[in-house]
Design a protein around this nucleic acid. Structure first.
Length: 567
RNA sequence: CGGGACGUGGCGCAGCUUGGUAGCGCGCAUCGUUCGGGACGAUGAGGUCGACGGUUCAAAUCCGUCCGUCCCGACCA
């Protein structure tokens, strides 16, 4: 491709308000343009990279036995009603009515549709199966952000495995795990795999692949010592023990005028330090009120709560709901004597005595609380958020908590979809059994952006060779010079004949402009051809990643470049 | 969904307080001089000032409504 004929609209100014480097660079270097919130056009450079990312994924999934499908983007609502997800995922679903008035959903994912196709499986002899497609997904995210990292329309490779039993699922799951590791490696990213919450997906076990990044929206707790890694949505850590005073204590109400927070009570005369208070939260879990108790200095992790009590929707109760239930405002709440709603207490409160908590009367607290004696705990749970530096549950070393981009997510679904959608086969004994499923997702454009987050410098993008839009850029220093044009075209033709993807920068620009643009768009290898070099029979080869240049005899340029690319 | 900000040539912005019919930088076109790390000069093209409504002799500017985009938070496979 000759640059003078290519559409590569590079910009000198950063786009306004771009907070993620990858977004800034992809826009400036002419890869993408925004059409509306969370919806992007791929320009030629972007589409070349996107295609390469998809091909890498395709290769790796094919390599573990995947069969490629293409399922539709429009789904009849009824199918989603059957699994209940038209309810549970309602807030992110894009939908419309066709001209007949039928409800159509633009697929946010494809479990239901693959499961529908799979009802044609009839025998255990047909299993295992591994099906996938690479298709556009629509998710009406409340807040798209960070360019390609969080969008409303995107491409995803999602695969689905079908097995006769758990053992088969485990095998397919492990194969996907390895395939994903290879994919991320080829995309130039180091990932940490973490235990995750499966959220609205149903099923039980899931693993997320996380790329550490300041613009990531998830948080990972990771122990460098033993390798423990979990999304903070499921992570645990060791609780620093607190010594309670010896002896039996009676419940004792006392006035605490104007005390409304844990911190207030800490400094109040006769109060208690945060770790000797019981924090009482009122939550609405799938429509029902419940109390959630934590140690005063601990923070609730909502997803952990949802997982513990198997709730789909959780929200803090509103002020009026709280007063109606407990008779006091937030700030004076306690669980002592409460019997009419479930009480979920965090494990860190177990065995604690002489604690202080609200008395369910405004401006009154109660001390001397023995948690197990005085509170009717329905269920002990682990719902505490993990913080950086706390001891690892596995080995005791301090864990680090850092933000990360979720690059891929794999799930063991079990029979969550097979049951309602009737995916059943006859087993060896002629018995009808539900098929055991897994699902495995990886977002194409998000991974493009994540790769840029991981591979850039102050000059621009530094693509790994496998996904670079072009392998080589030939920068002609004087395109108007006949010899330069002839020599650079010769090199270009020779490389192209060898299957190398080359961009010939024949634009009539000053060299500085062309060098800067080449670096900005991130082409891995640059060949500089100009009259000065031709006179002494050489061209210059520069590696983008290191910036290192070497002068090579014109006759050896093609071989030298191919060596570089192969390395 | 709550809070905040913004919307003016392709891109980045000023002008709005105090109404008088639009300007700067970059980019773009032509010509010339340049040319191994973002050149310079001359000439030129390009704008329903987000939309609709109102006030006014007159609206980018004042008022109202709506739409859009971004940021913080909530939410989120």
């Amino acid at each position: 491709m000759r640059w003078s004929q290519a559409f590569i609209p590079t910009l000198r100014d950063d786009p306004a308000d771009a907070e993620a480097v990858s977004h800034r660079l992809l826009v400036r270097a002419g890869y993408i343009r925004q059409l509306m919130a969370g919806v992007y056009s791929m320009l030629p450079l972007g589409q070349r990279v996107r295609t390469k990312v998809m091909n890498i994924i395709r290769e790796e999934i094919d390599a573990i036995g995947g069969q490629e499908f293409l399922l539709p983007q429009m789904h009849p609502r009824e199918i989603w009603d059957r699994t209940g997800r038209s309810e549970t995922m309602a807030d992110i679903m894009m939908s419309f009515q066709d001209n007949k008035g039928a409800d159509i959903i633009l697929g946010p994912t494809h479990e239901e549709i693959f499961a529908t196709v799979s009802t044609e499986l009839t025998s255990y002899k047909q299993l295992p199966q591994l099906w996938y497609h690479i298709q556009t997904k629509f998710r009406d995210e409340a807040r798209p952000k960070s360019g390609l990292l969080r969008v409303r329309e995107f491409t995803m490779k999602d695969s689905y495995s079908f097995d006769i039993d758990e053992a088969g699922l485990d095998l397919q799951f492990d194969r996907h795990y390895d395939a994903y590791v290879r994919i991320f490696e080829r995309l130039g990213m180091s990932v940490v795999s973490v235990r995750a919450s499966s959220g609205a997906m149903g099923g039980k076990e899931s693993v997320e692949f996380m790329v550490r990044s300041d613009v990531g929206e998830d948080e990972v707790a990771h122990c460098a010592e033993c390798g423990y890694a979990a999304n903070v949505e499921t992570a645990s850590s060791v609780v620093a023990p607190v010594e309670d005073p010896d002896g039996e204590f009676e419940l004792e109400r006392f006035d605490t005028p104007a005390v409304r927070t844990i911190a207030d009570l800490e400094v109040f005369e006769g109060g208690a330090s945060a770790d000797r208070q019981v924090k009482t939260l009122v939550y609405v879990l799938d429509g029902d009120l419940a109390l959630v108790l934590l140690r005063g200095d601990h923070v609730l992790q909502e997803q952990k709560l949802k997982d513990e009590v198997r709730a789909i929707v959780a929200r803090p109760a509103q002020a009026d709901e709280i007063v109606k239930l407990l008779g006091a405002d937030a700030g004076s709440l306690g669980a002592v004597g409460v019997t009419d709603v479930p009480i979920y207490a965090d494990a860190a409160l177990k065995g604690r005595t002489s604690m202080t908590t609200g008395a369910n009367t405004n401006d009154v607290h109660v001390r001397g609380v023995d948690v197990e004696r005085d509170i009717g705990v329905t269920q002990w749970v682990d719902v505490r958020r993990v913080f950086d530096g706390e001891p690892c549950v596995e080995c005791g070393a301090p864990v680090s908590v850092f933000p990360a981009i979720e690059a891929g997510h794999i799930f063991k679904l079990g029979t969550f979809y097979a049951e309602p959608l009737g995916v059943k086969v006859l087993d060896k004994d002629g018995k009808m059994v539900p098929v055991v499923m897994g699902s495995y997702g990886i977002g194409v454009e998000r991974n493009m952006a994540a790769s840029v987050e991981a591979n850039h410098d102050d000059k621009g993008i530094v693509w790994p060779i496998e996904i670079a839009p072009f392998h080589v850029v030939i920068t002609t220093v004087r395109p108007d010079d006949e010899e330069t044009e002839r020599v650079s075209t010769e090199i270009y033709d020779a490389l192209v004949a060898d299957g190398v993807e080359v961009l010939l920068d024949d634009r009539h620009e000053r060299p500085g402009v062309k060098f800067n643009d080449a670096e900005l768009i991130g082409v891995p290898v640059r060949i500089t051809v100009g009259p000065r070099g031709i006179q002494s029979g050489i061209a210059e080869i520069t590696e983008r990643s290191t910036g290192v240049s070497s002068e090579v005899a014109l006759a050896d340029v093609v071989a030298a470049v191919k060596d570089l690319l192969a390395a």
